[in-house]
Amino acid sequence: MNIFRLLGDVSHLLAIIILLLKIWKTRSCAGISGKSQLLFALTYTTRYLDLVTNFVSVYNTFMKVVFLAASYATIWLIYMKFRATYDQNHDTFRIEFLLLPVTILSLVANHEFTLIEILWTWSIYLEAVAILPQLFMVSKTGEAESITSHYLFALGSYRGLYILNWIYRYYMESYYDLIAIFAGILQTVLYCDFFYLYITKVLRGQRLQLPA
């Protein structure tokens, strides 16, 4: 554990809590992509299967359980409790275009050809692109509420901080995982356009509105 990893995890946790609170307090999931949230739930489920096979630390187990529970709670809020507020007409990204290449890539580029390892790899590749339906939704409606942009900023920062963690671990522990590094860089790059808008607009008190 190093400071970058810890800040990354805190940022990730913060993002998930912001989203849950936003939906709960406003009693609405308007502007939130249910498809992205489904992809994140699939990500955590397939990655954290090792919860039952491999103990790392109390911290690790605790965070995994929190991420899984929060993710399923979010799905429940969007698809059950506040279903009437779900903006289905704007959540039109075709996720099969993500699932297919992610599946093929995880079968080809993995550390070991075993079920649990392929599912871990699948989750890493899937996480990298899971936000695309949400970003697509923002670009389609041309705007995002401030709280939604805070969520996106925290979620995007998390993998960016992980990159610093990987650089640190490479030099300090001679540890590196090319699959995680490659996917993590892709994941962070996908947020760059959003980061620019967030810094130039939201932080200056303006709405996140895309040019027409």
Binding site: R5, D9, H12, R47, D50, N54, V56, S57, N60, M63, K64, F67, N110, H111, E112, T114, I116, E117, W120, Y162, N165, Y175, Y176, D177, L178, I179, A180
Partner: peptide, 10 residues
């Protein structure tokens, strides 16, 4: 590439 089984990150 390092082998799996020991993923210690989230």
């Amino acid at each position: 590439l390092r082998g799996g089984a020991g993923h210690d990150e989230l």
